[in-house]
């Protein structure tokens, strides 16, 4: 109990986590619905998979993972 942060600190951390929930879709937009994807266009391949496809799916899966982590934290607080 003694090393538990005070109320203001906890409220701040909570709002920080909630703000992160806003950041994820923005990050997704920036990485996929932007000219960044054009970098991976063309016929370059990664392990036999076209680079553009590889890139999009990796970003997608990463965002799923981040959302999973965040949801678990938010749920724990709820």
């Amino acid at each position: 109990m003694s090393d538990r942060p005070d109320l203001a600190e906890r409220a701040f951390r909570e709002s920080r986590k909630r703000d992160t929930a806003f950041v994820l879709p923005m990050l997704g937009l920036l990485l996929i619905v932007s000219p960044i994807v054009n970098i991976f266009a063309g016929i370059t391949t990664v392990w036999g998979i076209p680079a553009s496809v590889f890139y999009v799916f990796v970003v997608w899966l990463t965002l799923i993972g981040l959302t999973w982590r965040l949801s678990r934290r938010l749920l724990a607080e709820d």
Binding site: A21, P25, G28, I64, T67
Partner: peptide, 13 residues
């Protein structure tokens, strides 16, 4: 599929 995924990533909104 990405559009709906983005909406769910930002489900809090």
């Amino acid at each position: 599929y990405l559009g709906p995924s983005l909406v769910f990533f930002g489900w809090w909104l």
